[in-house]
C-alpha cells in the first residue's frame, strides 16, 4: 500500500531506531557492568535463607512467593482474573474444533490423566523442591488446551456459572486466609510458623485450580460456549462436562 518514497522513509526510520536502540543497549551494558563491578551489596538472599525454617516450606522460591511476598502472589492472581474478565467481556468464544479422530482421542485419553497426576505431584513437591502452584496450574491448563483441541468446546471446564467460582477460588481463599489471620491477631498473611505449611498448601491448591481454569479459559478465548446459548440459574449445579455425544453448540458465528 505504501508508495516507494514511503517505503524508503520507513526503512530509514527503522535503521535510525536500530542505531538509537543499539546505543541504548551499549549504555545499559556499561551500567550493568559497572553495577557488577561495584561488588556485592547486602542481598535479600541471606535473609531469605536465614528465615527459611519458620516459613513452613523448604523450597526458598515457594517461601518467597507464598510467605515473604505473599502480597505479590495475591495481586498476581488478581491480575490473571482481571485479564480473563477482559477476555470474557469481548464476547462469546469461537466455536470449538471438530471432534478428534480415534488416534488423537486415544492420545488425549493417555496424556490428560498424566498431566493431571504430574500437576498434583508438582503442587505437592513445591514445598521442598522445584515446583509449586504456577507450574502445576500451567500443566492443568495445558491439559485443558489439549482437551479443547480434541474437540470439547469448553476445554473440559464446567459451565460458566461454576467456572466463575473456580476462577475466583485463588483470590478468595488467599484473602480469606489473610483476613482470618488478622482476626486471630496476626497480621494480614502473616502465618504462625506452626500452621504455615497447611495454610500455604491450602492457598496453593486454590491458586492451582484458579490458574489452571484461567489459562484454559483464556485459550477458549471468550465467554464459554454452553449447551444452551445463555447460561441460566440451572447451571449453578450443572454437570462438569457436556455429554460426549452432543453436537457442537450452536454458537452464532461472529
Amino acid at each position: 500500500m505504501s508508495a516507494d518514497p514511503g517505503a524508503a522513509r520507513r526503512r530509514d526510520l527503522s535503521l535510525l531506531l536500530a542505531v538509537l536502540l543499539a546505543l541504548l543497549g551499549v549504555a545499559l551494558t556499561i551500567i550493568y557492568f559497572m553495577a557488577l563491578q561495584a561488588g556485592a551489596a547486602p542481598r535479600l538472599a541471606d535473609l531469605a535463607y536465614a528465615r527459611l525454617p519458620g516459613t513452613g516450606v523448604q523450597n526458598p522460591v515457594t517461601a518467597v512467593l507464598l510467605n515473604y511476598r505473599a502480597y505479590d502472589t495475591l495481586m498476581e492472581l488478581a491480575v490473571l482474573l482481571a485479564a480473563l474478565l477482559g477476555i470474557w467481556s469481548l464476547g462469546p468464544a469461537a466455536p470449538g474444533f471438530q471432534r478428534s479422530g480415534a488416534v488423537l482421542a486415544g492420545m488425549v485419553s493417555w496424556i490428560v490423566p498424566l498431566l493431571i497426576v504430574t500437576g498434583g505431584y508438582l503442587l505437592w513437591v513445591g514445598g521442598y523442591a522445584p515446583g509449586g502452584a504456577f507450574q502445576a496450574g500451567a500443566l492443568l491448563g495445558a491439559a485443558g488446551v489439549i482437551v479443547r483441541l480434541a474437540g470439547d468446546p469448553r476445554a473440559g471446564l464446567p459451565a460458566e456459572a461454576a467456572q466463575r467460582w473456580l476462577l475466583v477460588l485463588g483470590v478468595l481463599v488467599f484473602t480469606l486466609v489473610g483476613l482470618g489471620l488478622m482476626v486471630f491477631g496476626a497480621g494480614f498473611l502473616t502465618y504462625p510458623p506452626k500452621l504455615a505449611k497447611w495454610l500455604i498448601l491450602a492457598i496453593e491448591m486454590a491458586a492451582t485450580v484458579a490458574i489452571a481454569v484461567a489459562l484454559a479459559a483464556a485459550y477458549v478465548g471468550g465467554r464459554p460456549p454452553g449447551p444452551e446459548a445463555r447460561p441460566t440459574a440451572a447451571d449453578e449445579d450443572a454437570e462438569p462436562q457436556p455429554p460426549a455425544s452432543s453436537p457442537r453448540p450452536p454458537v452464532p458465528g461472529r
Binding site: 523450597n59 522460591v61 515457594t62 504456577f134 507450574q135 500451567a138 489459562l215
Partner: peptide, 10 residues
C-alpha cells in the same frame, strides 16, 4: 529450575 519449569510450561 523453578523458573525454568514455569517458562517451559507457561
Amino acid at each position: 529450575p523453578d523458573v525454568a519449569l514455569a517458562e517451559a510450561a507457561i
